[in-house]
Write a protein that binds this DNA or RNA. Structure first.
Lengths: 338, 338
DNA sequence: CTGTTAGCGCGTTCAA
DNA sequence: TTGAACGCGCTAACAG
């Protein structure tokens, strides 16, 4: 690899001149600039971003830690982050915590060692609280993505999970449902907690009895499926709501095993959901996360933060859209009480 | 940020000793090592990967350029690459070319400027041939992922697209189909070309007439849909095969618009396909790409290449699995000729 | 077993 | 308008 020295020699200038034409950081005689450019072309010189970063103490790169690169919603977020990053002249360094506190910590360490200019964290469910405290100490510019912890002094971007869930459930109550099963999953995850919160809100407003709201929580898929299956078998429940894509898959599978189909026998809705839902049966009513936009928003917040490090933290909540489909349409069965 | 100098001073040793306990690169008295470790902890020192990389001319990072971060198959590849990367102590720098030659070139430039130790490329369809030539010149360790160009002197990993398509079509011919529509899409993409090749192979072996193999190629979605729609309306075709997820979506949508349903009226199969296919109707027969494994394989090849730069290039083809489902099962209509 | 020191390739002051 | 020279933080060769 050619370095500046070779370019300088070839162009018969000093390396400082080369640097300046490269960065446009001071005026240089058109004539000499031309010579330099020619020398660059002929040597195949390429600026060493490492040395440059070391010297400027700025890498023009950001780190992104996602908790599950597998889920489509996260993949879209990554996509959005990458897109907005290049738009802002930033390179993206990606790490995956696989929902594991230890890997998450290591990932953050690695990224910090690489001197990324900023960090975007979609935190793991069992994330070590100490991690965030440590970050508060060192205060590298950090954005929390998707999973919002409201009392934290960080910039954050998420979706209005609680409100959207409230709307979803309210609508279903209005159309006659009274006995719900909410497949909530791991409620240590703030996102899922918010969704559960929205369900509770709507239940209160709709004056649902406690026995009419079955909330299924937990980490173990088998256990979740079994609990759902059992309660389905009572025949009371008229609507199932899943709080994430994996929970939806699990729920649909459980429904199928129990010989229950939607929308004929039961109503069904989910958050996040599946791609191309309108091509397939059952057409599932889905709360779509603006995942791409969330990723992009995180980058924008980060860029802002880099510009004004002392500004007070902001939380951005993006709106979600409810895509109503047949799985919640065909409600005919009325609960016994009516 | 604390530097080695501060750690050294605090531990009353030289910076070289600090470096050596950090990297375990030479023996050091347990006593002094302890002092150093203590100093590191108390200063909150963190090794600067930039300076280290500059000095060693090795970044322990790899660059990945994907052509469409949106498609699930690519998302899975990214996932696989990331996973295998950390396993090998490598950090992943991600870029997206969005199927655009220009962005792809810029991405490669950026990555090279960052002095990544190696490159993994899932190339864009309209990728500039000059790009690869340039790479051959500079020869940074490079792996071509998913889209294989057989005559190129690079390590490559792909799937056995041709063979799998041949099997798929042969099986369908055997079960009685004779009039196919292949939605092939942009056949400049090697992957899609291979799949088309497999279709032709099977047609030959199955003695299909030329009028019995409708191959729909092109870039414009509208045009593809229209051509498929038109040929569907002739009522001759008994099987549609889509060569990628977006093409499958487009095909299913076209079928729906034409009032044709699978498997009742027509057989349907696709490559790549949709997540959780077994939960939804129609249950689509799908050739599943081992995307995660392909990503991981690319990293392994890269690590090998870094170890032995002069070894001759290898091409790895991973096997694909055909997931047979109902969309190809229910074949009753026989072509008029039988 | 430990310390001194010369760069890695750049950006940036200071002087001319 | 240009050049000389220092140092970012680190590794590794050399010396002791």
């Amino acid at each position: 690899m050619a370095t500046m020295v070779e370019v300088a020699r070839k162009a018969k200038v000093s390396i400082s001149t080369v640097s300046h034409v490269l960065n446009g950081t001071r005026n240089v005689e058109p004539e000499t600039r031309k010579r330099v450019l020619a020398a660059i072309a002929s040597t195949g010189y390429r600026q060493d971003a490492l040395a440059r970063a070391l010297r400027r103490s700025q890498t023009d790169s950001i780190g992104l830690v996602v908790s599950d690169a597998g889920e489509p919603a996260f993949a879209e977020m990554v996509h959005g982050v990458e897109h907005a990053a290049v738009e802002n002249g930033l390179t993206l360094v990606l790490a995956n915590s696989a929902e594991n506190a230890d890997r998450e910590k290591k990932a953050v360490q690695t990224l910090l060692n690489r001197r990324v200019d900023g960090l975007i964290l979609a935190r793991a469910a069992e994330s070590d609280p100490a991690l965030l405290q440590a970050l508060e100490q060192e205060k590298p510019p950090t954005i929390l993505l998707d999973r919002i912890f409201s009392q934290l002094p960080f910039d954050q971007v998420g979706a209005d999970n609680r409100e959207t869930m409230r709307q979803l459930v309210t609508h279903m109550i209005v159309s006659g449902h009274r006995r719900f099963a909410l497949v909530a999953g791991d409620v240590r995850v703030p996102t899922l907690q918010e969704r559960m919160g929205g369900f509770t809100d709507a239940s209160l407003e709709g004056r649902l009895g406690l026995d009419e709201q079955l909330i299924i929580t937990g980490t173990d898929r088998e256990a979740l499926a079994e609990e759902l299956g059992n309660s389905l078998r009572t025949g009371q429940i008229t609507a199932v709501i899943a709080c994430s894509t994996p929970l939806a898959a699990l729920s649909l599978r459980t429904l199928a095993r129990a010989g229950i189909s939607t929308p004929r026998d039961i109503a069904f809705a989910t958050f996040d959901g599946f791609d191309n839902s309108d091509l397939f049966q059952p057409r599932v009513t889905t709360v779509r996360q603006p995942a791409f936009d969330m990723g992009a928003a995180a980058v924008h917040l980060l860029v802002e933060r880099l510009r004004t490090p002392e500004a007070s933290p902001r939380t951005v909540r993006l709106q979600q859209r409810i895509e109503w489909r047949e799985s919640t349409e065909d409600y005919r069965r009325q609960p016994a009480g009516d």
